[in-house]
């Protein structure tokens, strides 16, 4: 369960104060696929960063599972992210000089796994996203959709409970966007992952369990449950 309780995030830009989030409270049950939606500057990426332990709230409580993220040091947050969170970005952010399988292995460098075991885990993750036969390709030899699949494999390789995705379909065509959303849905349904996604993509509504709408840093509708056919 992800619990956000009366969270505010204030940024200072010179003498100005920017209220990125104001008094947001929400709960996301384990094993659900949720979308954070809203216009640019509404605070959805800020909320995602707080859930993922990349940022700290100015006030309020962020709790993911048993872990209260408030007050953790930068190194403690890094260790927590390495073990519990998988990340997917809009522009894939793969390391261009590493092959697909090597990119997937990168998070495993932080584990105690032996080299051979790291390779096995990475191969399994790549097979889950359907790219086992492209494992030796460099990112620039893969299509956008394939690169995003590699990024998803990298996100799931350490078997985290939580996967956060920031505009994962923002740089993809309709076909690939649908494939990626299906894959994220599959992670939720088959592997019981909690998936939190920031998106502008209206197609996403068909795949997620709930959406949260934000405007100007405020949660405007609470949770909207989505019924799937």
């Amino acid at each position: 369960m992800i619990e956000i309780h009366q969270v505010s995030r204030l940024y200072r830009r010179g003498v100005d104060e920017v209220h990125a989030l104001e008094d947001v409270s929400l709960q996301i049950p384990d094993g659900t696929f949720v979308a954070l939606m809203g216009p640019s500057g509404s605070g959805k990426s800020t909320l995602l960063n707080l859930i993922a332990g990349l940022d700290q709230p100015t006030s309020g409580v962020v709790k993911v599972g048993a872990q209260n993220l408030n007050g953790l040091s930068e190194d403690q947050l890094a260790a927590w992210r390495a073990a519990h969170v998988g990340f997917i970005f809009q522009f894939y952010n793969l390391i261009p000089v590493l092959s697909a399988i090597e990119n997937v292995e990168v998070p495993l460098l932080l584990t105690r796994l032996a080299k051979a075991d790291r390779r096995k885990h990475a191969e399994l993750a790549l097979s889950i996203v359907g790219l086992a036969d492209r494992k030796h390709h460099l990112p620039n030899q893969l299509s956008g959709g394939e690169q995003q699949r590699v990024a998803i494999a990298r996100a799931i390789v350490v078997d985290p409970e939580l996967i956060v995705a920031d505009e994962p379909t923002g740089d993809l065509d309709a076909k690939n966007a649908d494939d990626i959303l299906s894959l994220l849905r599959q992670l939720k349904s088959e592997f019981h992952k909690t998936v939190v996604m920031v998106t502008h993509d209206p197609r996403a509504i068909r795949y997620v369990d709930q959406t949260f709408h934000l405007e100007q840093g405020v949660l405007v509708n609470g949770a909207t449950a989505v019924e799937h056919a």
Binding site: A52, L54, E74, D75, A78, A79, R81, A82, A83, V85, G86, F87, F89, N93, I95, V106, P107, L110, R154
Partner: peptide
Amino acid sequence: VLKTIGFRR
């Protein structure tokens, strides 16, 4: 990205 996925300082 490395820091995001858990690489410490």
